[in-house]
Design a protein around this nucleic acid. Structure first.
Lengths: 212, 212
DNA sequence: TCTCTATCTGATCGCTGTAAAGATTTAAGT
DNA sequence: ACTTAAATCTTTACAGCGATCAGATAGAGA
């Protein structure tokens, strides 16, 4: 039967296309922006006919979801890196926030695809259930930062943190704020200042052992 | 003589098409969602040919901007209403936050158009410069709530508040949070809890005279 | 009245997403 | 090895989209 699509060397007539399509899509996103991301353009970029993608994705949306999925994984990895790099559990939360917004700022087209996919749903996306997901990591960091929240409180705090980071990710692009950014020591200083102002990422409490 | 958009027999010249187009667009948005909002559909809904809109708007984007503009005005009005209804200056900020998110939740398609227009810009939109704009009202409410912030602090606080509200507006649609919402007394309780958690809308300080 | 200009229509172009049918390659069963 | 079934890719086609342009129409001003 078919192998689990994870291994590479899967020479067919054109290789394992579904992966190539996602990569092509990301290349177009980076080079030409979200507006240029048509299914046909992706097929063209991958060197196949316009109809070929339909053997791997139900429709354009499903391809975009695959692209978004990769984005969420990458974001999760960035968050994890920031968490590990933090000197203590409390500052970990702050680092996560900065990492999140920085990722969004550095991959604006990808971030857009990630959220465009979410806006059509009423169910929280699957990727949040992975242990390595950004969402779970924020939860763990909140627990680790102390305060021993009950489940409802934890969910509330996580939602709040996510709202702050996402909101900032979408607001940070305006030139209008350039002067303020400069006075705060550049982009990262700006991000940190807003997140600190929102307070979610610097909760009171004692350090604890890492929960994950 | 021109009839004021009040429907009548259909003359060759519509009378006030540009307004009718915006209204048609909003009707489509409410009834069929953002995906159905094509220029041709708007023209159809307004009863004109597909090319007619181009005599009033440079392209589709310009029409959407007009729709968004109306949305921002409406949002500004809701915010103003909430501000006036507040018993004191400090609770005004909280009321503004709830009004903002509630507006976004009750007009999701319109809110989407409003922000889709923003995501392509690096300049903060014009509507923010009006005294009645939501942005200016948040600034005034922050000043009125006390704390005497210097300009940079004021800008920071306003951005932070906006991030929180926008982030929440986009996160509040997930069913995953239904149980939490219920336990917090419904949608508004949920909104208030998150915003309170983020703290922006309940800053310390004494009441002051209204600044605007 | 005649003309000018703004507005609206109709036809058209290139692009899009998607479907259906045919071709080709790999895998499975004997 | 030979046949058959399944998976993959191409070709062709269609309807809808944004946009342009030449021409029809109507109201305003001379």
């Amino acid at each position: 039967m078919r192998e689990t699509a994870s291994a590479a060397a899967k020479p067919y007539h054109h290789g394992d296309l579904s992966r190539a399509l996602v990569q092509a899509a990301r290349r177009i996103l980076e080079n030409e922006g979200p507006a240029a991301l048509s299914l046909r353009a992706v097929a063209r970029e991958a060197g196949v006919s316009p109809a070929a993608p339909y053997h791997h994705f139900k429709d354009k949306n499903e391809l975009l979801e695959a692209v978004a999925e990769e984005g969420w994984e990458q974001l999760g990895a960035e968050v994890a890196k920031a968490r590990e790099a933090a000197p203590n559990q409390r500052s970990a939360l702050s680092g996560i926030g900065v990492a999140y917004v920085t990722f969004a700022r550095q991959n604006p087209a990808l971030y857009r695809v990630m959220y465009d996919g979410m806006r059509d749903r009423t169910e929280f996306p699957e990727h949040a259930k992975d242990a390595s997901s950004g969402w779970n990591q924020v939860e763990c960091a909140i627990i680790a930062a102390g305060g021993d929240p009950d489940p409802a409180e934890l969910q509330l705090a996580t939602i709040a943190a996510w709202c702050a980071a996402h909101g900032l990710a979408e607001m940070a692009s305006f030139r209008e704020f350039d002067a303020l950014k400069e006075s705060l020591g550049g982009e990262e200083g700006f991000i940190r200042a807003i997140l600190d102002h929102l307070g979610v990422f610097v909760r009171p409490g004692r350090d604890k052992q890492p929960a994950v």
